[in-house]
Nucleic acid binder design. Structure first.
Lengths: 152, 152
DNA sequence: TGAAAACCTACTAGCTTGATAGAGATAATA
DNA sequence: TATTATCTCTATCAAGCTAGTAGGTTTTCA
């Protein structure tokens, strides 16, 4: 299960990305429209800003706006930001690899082998799909097949 | 990330399933061989027994043995048993469905739509792969395509 | 100067994880 | 029958995490 924090982050991002170009949205407005605790949302928006995804304007008539275009922000990136590694095992994480304690041999670990498949399947989708895709409902079939397995 | 408990459960199950037919394994032996805290493992084995996956014999020369054949025990089942629903959102869980609070329309929820794809991909693999598959290294390609989408 | 907004830091209740502890029940065997 | 090895059950606990709440500071606009 993803955390509430991540869920709120997605809602907020979708809201900001859906706003007319150049128009900013205040945290209070987002909170009201999506029933998110306001102060909690503020922290989340701040994280999104620190991550370089959102831009903010302070003061009266301030608010939030996309910094990076919505089609460059993947679900995987946002989820990682709030919930940590996507991988089901530390030894399967690319971004924050860590061997399991007491692991004798990664190559021979059946658990790793099985979860690697499952993880790879969902990882590819979360990595490929962006906030923009979600907004305009681009169908799943349009995801280009990932050829480069080398980096895995 | 899956819990330590689930990881231990997989290790233990693989060990019991790998034992020669009819031969039982004691919790102490499994704990020793896989560096799992003994008393903690006992709880886990008990859960596996209550779930009808393992069988136990008490007393001297007791131990654990598979109750159900290893090729009927899926990774999904074991993971659910210890870590709860596989679904990233409550509204995506088949076994323990629950709407998100404050959800206005499931059909129109972009977050649900995106995560549904990712979840379905890994769910199918975890559901299809069994302890027996993991043990004899049956290649992933051999998984039969799931045709019935109706139950989704 | 006042209002509205983002920004920052601290705190907290309740839950979950990953165990540890100790006693009881049962079965083989000496 | 006593011993011993094993599973079984229940309670407890420290540490960390989740989902916030709280209260102030800074910035900007009118």
């Amino acid at each position: 299960m993803i955390s509430n924090k991540a869920k709120y982050a997605f809602r907020a991002l979708l809201a900001v990305a859906a706003a007319p170009a150049g128009e900013s949205l205040t945290s209070a407005e987002i909170a009201r429209r999506h029933s998110i605790p306001h102060k909690f949302l503020e922290q989340i928006l701040l994280d999104l800003k620190k991550a370089g995804i959102l831009e903010s304007r302070r003061g009266k008539s301030g608010g939030y706006i996309m910094l990076r275009p919505a089609d460059t922000v993947s679900f995987a990136e946002v989820l990682r930001l709030f919930d940590g590694p996507l991988a089901p095992l530390p030894c399967l994480s690319r971004q924050s690899y860590r061997p399991c304690e007491d692991c004798i041999s990664e190559a021979q670990c059946e658990i790793r082998r099985e979860f690697a498949r499952a993880h790879e399947a969902s990882r590819r989708i979360l990595e490929a799909r962006t906030i923009a895709d979600a907004l305009n409902g681009r169908p799943f079939e349009a995801i280009p097949a990932e050829r480069s397995r080398a980096a895995s």
